[in-house]
């Protein structure tokens, strides 16, 4: 078992330019079942001589039964790609693209209400399920190992850090999910925590938050009332100065709730095992589970 993606995932990739094609190759190498590609001007051809290109998402789904979409389309055109995938009825859309205008995300978020689609991202590293050798996005396949820990994070490279420590300490992962670093995104910590709680394979959850917004506090409230599995968490940005954007568009302290200390406290109060630095995630998981 796993969450969001597994051996039944049939992936459609939209935006197969320089980054998209590099990452498509990595996904194929890892074992992901990519069934179709959408890229303007390439219809009729095949990516790597095996994955057919189509001119529209609807057509690609009709011919290949894709059920998950991944988007590498450049930011100026990403809104249109996301809307096209929502309209096609895909159950899961993963948007890797960074730098989408915030007004576009405001509209997309409103458009998603009452739709059956889940959007993960944008500005995220995607998802990986080691057991079924499926990855959608850019998390390196060679650092993960099948196991029982669910990982959810707002940051890309910090997810890799957590995974590598888990492996060092002998723990594999059920699924690893990056929800993205933008202030407005499709899927929240709470959404993923719900899925991990329901997933039989997942025994414990590692949550990596960062400064800005109040998503970690929402997570803490949910954990307190709805979660039975142990959660190990860390927050990045204790040393970040107030009012300065730290790379991610969402990583900026503008009020009390945005502070790393406030997030730490909310999580600790909810019974989460909080470590001061990501350097101690692996050890803490060992301690909690043994």
């Amino acid at each position: 078992m796993s969450i969001l993606i597994d051996e039944n995932t049939k992936l459609l990739i939209q935006g197969v330019g320089k980054d998209g094609s590099f990452q498509a190759l990595r996904m194929l190498e890892y074992g992901t079942n990519i069934v179709s590609a959408v890229h303007p001007g390439k219809e009729g051809k095949k990516f790597e001589n095996k994955i057919p290109y189509f001119s529209s998402v609807n057509e690609a789904i009709k011919k290949t039964n894709a059920n998950v979409g991944v988007i590498f389309v450049p930011a100026p055109f990403a809104k249109d790609a996301i809307i096209e995938q929502i309209d096609s009825g895909l159950e899961l859309i993963v948007c890797i693209t960074e730098g989408i205008p915030i007004h576009d995300m405001v509209q997309i978020k409103a458009y998603l209400i009452n739709k059956n689609t889940r959007l993960l991202g944008p500005n995220c590293p995607g998802i990986i399920t080691p057991e079924s050798k499926t990855k959608v996005g850019i998390i390196p396949g060679n650092i993960v190992k099948p196991g029982n820990i669910g990982v959810v994070s707002r940051s890309g490279t910090l997810t890799y850090e957590a995974i590598s420590q888990l492996v060092q300490n002998g723990f594999g992962q059920s699924t690893c999910v990056g929800i993205g670093g933008d202030p407005i995104n499709g899927t929240s910590f709470v959404d993923i925590l719900k899925l991990f709680e329901e997933d039989k394979k997942t025994k414990a959850i590692v949550l990596i938050g960062e400064i800005g917004g109040n998503k970690e506090q929402e997570a803490a409230n949910f954990i307190k009332t709805h979660l039975s599995k142990p959660v190990i968490a860390t927050i990045a940005g204790h040393t970040a100065p107030e009012g300065k954007r730290m790379g991610h568009a969402g990583a900026i302290v503008t009020g009390e709730s945005g502070l790393a200390s406030a997030k730490n406290k909310a999580l600790s109060d909810a019974g989460v095992h909080v470590v001061e630095s990501p350097a101690y995630i692996g050890k803490k998981v060992s301690e909690v589970l043994t």
């Binding site: 940051s155 490279t157 910090l158 890799y160 204790h238 970040a240 730290m246 990583a251 630095s277």
Partner: peptide
Amino acid sequence: VNGAGLAMATMDLTKWAGAEP
């Protein structure tokens, strides 16, 4: 550092080690 989250975590670690980033 590469990556915003890891960059923040690296600053935090520096501070934890007793130095100012």
